[in-house]
């Protein structure tokens, strides 16, 4: 009972309850919201966002940020489509795309860690470079005429559950286990919490940081595959403002923007909140052109709440010392 109370009181618990409250609220206005087809739709929408935002969360935990994810998602989706079109079997192009994603993470990590460019600036520059490169290579043309088999992941299902949801659940489980229960995961928290102390403790800080960006790139690749295999054509401008959504999911889920703390399960819930709100806009007949403003406001509110909690926590510690 006590642990349940504690769970509810934690940031992740609050967000989880928030999801239920929003869902209940919309259902009251429009009961069709609770239909299985709609829930399935929400889950499929949330799957790629969740997978990608887990990586973003890890990066934010290290104290960094990634603004290039939208462009990378587009790049990887296009590669995925192109490889499929070339007739490669699914496992092969899956692996190739994940490798490519990991490589983009390596590029990020290398520039940030080895060349000491602030993460914000580095990824902003890379965003422009990737977007430019995509348009240059494709000439803005979409990839069409994809083979039928291409949609296995995106449209198929396993025992009635969409494949993309299955993949999401596997990835979330792995990521939570990785961050909570493995040494590299704990090292990521340590580096984000206090990098110089991590170095003194014998943690290879640079390797950990670069590794985080690489894992994040890998996750982004999986997200790209889950995302692009739902469509029969792949556009060159997909993933616009994706980084905003990912950051929103992470900070709403309780990841501290100052680095060092945050739980990945919270990020999962954060992604859920965002997607449900988006769907809600449709159900409440509000123009989706307001979506972007809403996400921006949500990020700001989530950070303000996080700051407020931090402020309150530090006050109690000071009081404790004097007592």
């Amino acid at each position: 009972m006590k642990t349940i109370m504690k769970g509810i009181k934690s940031r992740e618990g609050v967000v989880a309850i928030l999801i239920l409250v929003i869902a209940a609220g919309i259902t009251m206005v429009n009961p069709s919201f609770m239909q299985w087809s709609n829930i399935k739709d929400i889950l499929m929408n949330v799957s790629y966002i969740t997978i990608a935002s887990l990586g973003m969360s890890m990066i934010i935990i290290t104290g960094g940020i990634d603004c290039s994810s939208g462009a990378v998602l587009a790049l990887l989706s296009l590669c995925c489509g192109q490889l499929a079109k070339m007739g490669l079997p699914l496992p092969i192009y899956f692996v190739l795309v994940v490798l490519l994603g990991t490589f983009t993470g390596l590029v990020n990590g290398f520039i940030i860690v080895k060349l000491h460019v602030p993460p914000m600036i580095c990824t902003l520059a890379l965003y422009n470079i990737y977007r430019g490169a995509i348009l240059l290579v494709t000439g803005g043309e979409w990839i069409t005429n994809l083979p039928k088999s291409f949609n296995i992941i995106g449209k198929g299902d396993l025992l009635g559950i969409p494949n993309s949801v299955v993949i999401m659940l596997v990835v979330v489980t792995w990521a939570v286990w990785f961050m909570e229960r493995t040494e590299p995961g704990r090292n990521i928290y340590a580096v984000g919490s206090n990098a110089s102390a991590a170095r003194l403790a014998g943690i290879r800080v640079e390797r950990t940081l670069i590794g985080t960006y690489m894992i994040s790139g890998g996750l982004l690749a999986i997200a790209s595959i889950v995302f692009c295999t739902r469509f029969t054509t792949i556009q060159t401008n997909v993933g616009e403002n994706l980084h905003l959504t990912l950051i929103a999911a992470a900070v709403i889920g309780g990841t501290s923007i100052l680095g060092g703390s945050g739980k990945l399960i919270g990020t999962f819930f954060g992604a859920m909140v965002l997607t449900i709100i988006r769907t809600a806009l449709v159900y409440l007949k509000i123009s989706t052109y307001w979506d972007q403003a809403l996400q921006g406001a949500l990020i700001l509110i989530a950070i303000l709440v996080g700051m407020y909690n931090l402020h309150r926590a530090s006050k109690t510690v000071k009081g404790g010392v004097s007592g």
């Binding site: 704990r186 090292n187 206090n194 102390a197 003194l200």
Partner: peptide
Amino acid sequence: HQETSLFPDLSIMENMFIGRLPKKGFFRSV
């Protein structure tokens, strides 16, 4: 060290062992 080299977000025990956390099992989890 003179400047405390601790991780405010980690637990006491993790602070003690970070860098060489004990591991178990096939997956080498902590």
